[in-house]
Design a binder for these strands. Sequence first.
DNA 1: GTCTATAGCCAGATAGAC
DNA 2: GTCTATCTGGCTATAGAC
Lengths: 203, 203
Amino acid sequence: MTKLKQTSSEEDILNAAKTVFEKKGMDGARMQEIADKAGINKALLHYYFRSKQLLFEAVFKSAFSMLAPKLHEILNNDSSLFEKIQNFTENYIAFIIKHPYLPNFLIQELNRNPEFVKKLVTEKKFPDLTKFKNQIEEAVSSGLIKPIKPEQLFINIISLNIFPFVGGNLIKSFLGIEKEDYNKLLEQRKTEVATFIINSIKK
Amino acid sequence: MTKLKQTSSEEDILNAAKTVFEKKGMDGARMQEIADKAGINKALLHYYFRSKQLLFEAVFKSAFSMLAPKLHEILNNDSSLFEKIQNFTENYIAFIIKHPYLPNFLIQELNRNPEFVKKLVTEKKFPDLTKFKNQIEEAVSSGLIKPIKPEQLFINIISLNIFPFVGGNLIKSFLGIEKEDYNKLLEQRKTEVATFIINSIKK
DNA sequence: GTCTATAGCCAGATAGAC
DNA sequence: GTCTATCTGGCTATAGAC
């Protein structure tokens, strides 16, 4: 704990920047809009963060560090495989419902700038999946679940939980429904997705 | 069929624009880069398409119309529910492997500009899901599959098939693997995803 | 149809007063 | 730390020659 409280401006800027970057991305965001939202002047943005690029990186890292440790914790605690799947589904969906732009933002910017990923990897900011993979392999060899590659199961879990947020607008249009009905479906998924996965793999 | 062949330039521009827009999005794309890629001059872009916005819309519609009719066809032919799931998985993954930027591009731009979606909806460019939903409801009531809301099953199918492309960079980093290994996983998914889904719902 | 040159605008960044 | 004013560069778009 180096500081008890940052200056109010710096926090205001970060919050405003988060909102704008998450909605519009690096290229679409405007420093002016961030300044307006933070209730301060454009020059002050540069005073605190030097450049748009650096402000963006601060936002990105902050966003990333909201998700990664949570994921790490869920995958590495002592619960059983089925419990983990339930945990992941419930907690993650609940969390992302509160931050719906987050996954899309991260994915979009990782695609835009894959170099950035490598930086995060070397800084070991990504969750460690070894334990989770071992757990799956044991569950397979002990006959608890049907044979499946840990990688594939992991992809399935992530896909079922995250895509409904990233592709929400697409799905809504396909289904011909509005926001409120879609939110009800998402709410339901907190429990149903885990059941769907477990039904598929359990013997 | 109004024309047998468009001018070569117009096609060249569209192809170049497709590449650039799909990789960088509307905001990140540069008219100069598109011109360079098409081997022509920047002014010619405006001669053919008037503005960046109109060129973008042409690309977007073209991309959208590569996916939607294919989806419509698969969901509305006469095969059984399980066959449709298998069909969708195999064909769609095979198709998107050839156009890996497509889903991300569509999703990103639909999120950026939800008004555009409504335009597409009113132009009835979206696939009709009624038949597919009925098929699921019948399969539930006849006892072929476990109870599940058609909407949820649809979301699951889409998520499992599309997210691995949209979030490919994220997943690769999580799994700590490189492109070639990831492509092998995707190849495997052409058959495995259908099995995963069917295992989950069949009684 | 295709090019060069340039207008005009807008956004990021900086200077400098307070 | 915070502001106003301004510089600078880059990008879309157009004018006009060929």
